[in-house]
Amino acid sequence: MSFMDRFVSGWRKHRQAATDDDFDYAWTMSIDLDRCTGCGACVTACQAENNIPLVGEKELAGGREMQWIRIERYWEGEYPNAKLSFIPMMCQHCDSAPCETVCPVSATYHNQDGLNTQIYNRCIGTRSCAVYCPYEVRFFNYYDHHWPAPLDQQLNPDVTVREKGVMEKCTFCIQRIRQAKDHAKDEGRRVADGEVQPACVQTCPSEALVFGDRKDPNSNVSKSINDPRAYHVLGELNTRPSVVYLKKVDADVV
């Protein structure tokens, strides 16, 4: 066996994506683009829940934004037939995540719930994961960020405040998931559908975002991802995302 064969077969073992059977829960989000209005409530809700720093105008101008969820917008056509579509974009929690295999210190890994998780105090800031992520949803702390008093009183005690040199990204509000799982465990049951919602899903005014366990066939998210409109963004990359988009309806599409 040549080195190359051994390398490829060894790599294949690690490239084997986990299946839902390997997970306790398979947390999934569906995003209905026919409902999304691009209002940005999810963005601010996420900032508030997850202690996302304010980076300031200068850093934003330098392309160093910090927004775990963002609204991307795409124009089609020209005036007067220009059309605009919005798409919320955040960590897709890929079951075959390019960012995980590339981390030299395994700071980002797949947990028992199928979440792509970031261990802040293991991260050494190589930023390789951000390079490998095709969705551009990983954000690096180039500086220590500060909250002028008393803005710091708002910080969520359930979420770590990240320091300089650490990569961060959407966690599906893992602190809320943990709490719901603990509570369910105390009562000797599984987490019920709708019991846990990330901040973005909870606030979405048009109910475009739905969150739940796709292992539960009766959950709202399971129904949603079985919609004929369901698709994965950049699905051709085989990243197996846990975020499922529902196509926007446009009567002009033939």
Partner: peptide
């Protein structure tokens, strides 16, 4: 990235 479908298709 954003995909469309028709109501009639």
């Amino acid at each position: 990235i954003v995909r469309f479908t028709s109501t009639t298709s």
